[in-house]
């Protein structure tokens, strides 16, 4: 059965762009062969839609990037951004090295303080004498020497 003009005009745009299924395409083609009015509409629609194709740019403009770079170079903001990018790029490894250095130094400090606490050999004589003097004066020595458990023992004598 041949399609009616109203039906054709509903799907003409899809026929122009070739997105109809083969059966529908065949039916539209047959209709256009016989109907001058629909054929005229088809040709006009095809011509109008082809304008889009003529507007699409296929080749790049060599002056476009030059103009853009020039525009960016003249902008002080750009120079700031580029120098910021560069500074950040340089600073990244420097900051990383600094952080590693700080971490190592802190580690050494912590380790060192613990070793001082337990290593009695590092205290030289003069420091030992000074500490002893302070301990004698404030009676810290006895407390320091006293075993913690003995504090809770009641003396009977």
């Amino acid at each position: 059965m041949m399609m009616r003009c109203e039906e054709i005009k509903e799907i003409l745009i899809f026929f122009v762009e070739g997105s109809l299924n083969p059966d529908k395409t065949n039916q539209v083609q047959k209709h256009l062969e016989k109907c001058q009015e629909c054929k005229s509409s088809y040709l006009k629609l095809k011509s109008v839609l082809s304008i889009i194709e003529t507007e699409i740019i296929k080749e790049s403009n060599p002056y476009f990037s030059m103009k853009l770079i020039e525009r960016l170079k003249n902008s002080s903001e750009t120079n700031e951004v580029f120098s910021a990018f560069r500074i950040i790029g340089i600073l990244k490894p420097v900051v990383a090295i600094l952080l590693i250095g700080i971490a190592i130094y802190t580690g050494i400090l912590i380790g060192g303080s613990y070793s001082h606490k337990y290593d009695t050999t590092v205290i030289d004589d003069s420091r030992g004498i000074q500490l002893q003097a302070v301990a004698d004066e404030f009676y810290l020595n006895d407390i320091g020497m006293e075993n913690i458990e003995t504090l809770l023992i009641i003396e009977n004598n």
Partner: peptide
């Protein structure tokens, strides 16, 4: 590259996507 401050890389990007 652009974030490292390479201006030629930006030009390359523009040429690649301008159309």
């Amino acid at each position: 590259k652009i974030l490292e401050g390479d201006q030629f890389a930006f030009k390359e990007l523009v040429e690649k996507y301008q159309t």
